[in-house]
Computed example of a mutant assay.
Amino acid sequence: MTHEAAKEKLGEFAASQALSLGVELELQLLSTHHYDMAPYAPDMLALLKNAKVPGSIVPEVTASMIEISTGICQDAQDAYEQLSVTRDALVKAADRLNITLAGGGTHPFQQWHQQRIYDKPRFKEMTALYGYLTKQFTIFGQHVHVGCPSADDALMMLHRLSRYIPHFIALSASSPFVQGQDTAFDSARLNSVFAFPLSGRAPFALHWEDFERYFDKMAATGVIHSMKDFYWDIRPKPEFGTVEVRVFDTPLSIDRAAQLAAYVQALGAWFLSEQPFEPSEDDYLVYTYNRFQACRFGLDGTYVDPVSSEQHSLREHIALTLQKISSYAPANGSNALQDLKQVLGPQGNDACWLRERYAKVQQLPEVVRQASLRFSGRG
Results as ranks from 00 to 15, higher is better:
V91Q: 04
K92W: 04
K92Y: 13
A93E: 03
A93H: 08
A94E: 02
A94V: 04
D95T: 12
D95L: 12
D95M: 09
D95G: 15
R96P: 05
R96C: 04
R96A: 13
R96E: 12
R96Q: 14
R96Y: 14
L97V: 12
L97K: 07
L97A: 09
N98F: 10
N98I: 07
I99R: 09
I99T: 08
I99M: 05
I99H: 09
I99Q: 04
T100K: 05
T100H: 05
T100M: 10
T100N: 10
T100R: 13
L101R: 00
L101F: 11
A102H: 02
A102V: 00
G103I: 10
G103Y: 00
G104L: 06
G104A: 08
G104W: 00
G105A: 02
G105S: 02
G105Y: 03
T106W: 03
T106D: 05
T106C: 11
T106F: 05
H107W: 02
F109V: 01
F109A: 01
F109Y: 14
Q110C: 09
Q110A: 13
Q111V: 11
Q111K: 14
Q111L: 15
Q111E: 12
Q111A: 12
Q111Y: 07
W112D: 12
W112I: 07
H113M: 12
Q114N: 15
Q114W: 11
Q114A: 12
Q115L: 13
R116W: 11
R116S: 13
Y118D: 12
Y118W: 11
Y118M: 12
D119P: 00
D119C: 01
D119L: 14
K120S: 14
K120Y: 14
P121M: 01
P121T: 04
R122Y: 04
R122L: 09
F123M: 05
F123L: 09
K124N: 04
M126L: 15
T127M: 13
T127N: 07
A128T: 02
L129D: 08
L129H: 12
Y130A: 07
Y130K: 00
G131D: 03
Y132I: 08
L133G: 04
L133E: 04
T134D: 02
K135P: 09
K135N: 05
K135F: 10
K135C: 08
Q136D: 06
T138V: 11
T138G: 08
T138I: 14
I139D: 01
I139Y: 05
F140D: 01
G141S: 14
Q142V: 15
